[in-house]
Design a protein around this nucleic acid. Structure first.
Lengths: 182, 182
DNA sequence: ACCTGAACACCGTTCAAGT
DNA sequence: ACCTGAACACCGTTCAAGT
């Protein structure tokens, strides 16, 4: 990548992080280009689609989550590992407002720039879930796709200002439906 | 209301039901006016805000839900009444794509045209929940606002094509977190 | 009273023209 | 190679002008 292109790319990401934090995942791309001091076409050149831009913004957190799954598996009980991972998954999906819809769509759309990350996250969660099931800590009728969907639903709750104060409590309620009661 | 105004109002609702069914809650208002054969200003006159239009579209279902709560309370066990009501609540919030966000916002916004309906629904659900708790069928730490949020989250799941086949299963998982295990 | 549609300030996306 | 910004087809919202 040419030096000037690299500079534009980096600057776009910095500004996009700000704007998306303020306006959510449906922020104006024009506004991002404007605030980055870059032509609109330059934004499209580097990020041909909105998903591509968001993927760049979310990638770090997503990758960390997969790493975390391995860590948690090593140091916690299967139950704690699963619950902690789900909590971080929800936090991750809530990094910016309005990404839950995109994550739900991307998991089934191989063409999305977010697809690979989402599939990887679902897989790392499924692994922890299987361990918890092996230890009789999680119900047998839940699978990785269920976990992904429930995490998305909890992230959606976290996106709604009206439910702000109760997200932790609602998390516990949903987790009760996943874990066995012992 | 003048006869011509009434005709426009009715026609707008008929067309809006079609368009919103096709495009979701964020359908183009311009398109609705156009397909109704009416000026854009006429739509704004009858429905000063998008919420007002959707309220008119959703009102019937919402009102039925409150009626259903009383019926269910009479003919079912407290547990069955609660679960059946929640299922219908979710179906109601899923009548059109993209209403879940609006319902979450409206419950805390007295200025929204949807506010009253949402508060009424939450109240009718809270009543069934209290009955179920009285019969030791539902956990004591859940309240009407939790029920409303969880219903919204399940409706969000129903909105995502990627989760289409698992909505019933995910419903059961969440319900397990609400009910006592006996 | 009620309706219309132009006007305004925004979008996302594409692409010819420039360096 | 890369960048720019005009051009196009859309929005939501308002409001002067009409009947």
């Amino acid at each position: 990548m040419r030096a000037d292109a690299r500079k534009n790319y980096d600057q776009l990401l910095v500004v996009a992080a700000e704007v998306v934090a303020e306006e959510g995942a449906d922020a104006s791309l024009r506004d991002i280009a404007r605030r980055a001091g870059v032509g609109l076409g330059t934004l499209y050149r580097h990020f041909p689609t909105r998903d591509a831009l968001l993927e760049a913004l979310l990638r770090t957190g997503f990758d960390e989550l997969t790493t975390r799954a391995a860590e948690l598996e090593a140091v916690s009980t299967p139950e704690d590992a699963l619950v902690s991972w789900l909590r971080e998954f929800v936090a991750c999906a809530d990094a910016y407002q309005g990404v839950t819809d995109l994550m739900a769509a991307a998991i089934e759309d191989p063409g999305s720039a977010l697809h690979a990350s989402c599939v990887a996250m679902r897989a790392s969660g499924a692994r922890l879930l299987a361990h918890a099931q092996g230890a009789d800590a999680a119900r047998a009728d839940v699978d990785g796709a269920d976990l992904y969907a429930l995490g998305g639903a909890l992230a959606w709750i976290g996106d709604q200002p009206a439910f702000a104060g109760r997200t932790d409590h609602l998390f516990e309620i949903v987790v009760r439906g996943i874990l066995t009661d012992r």
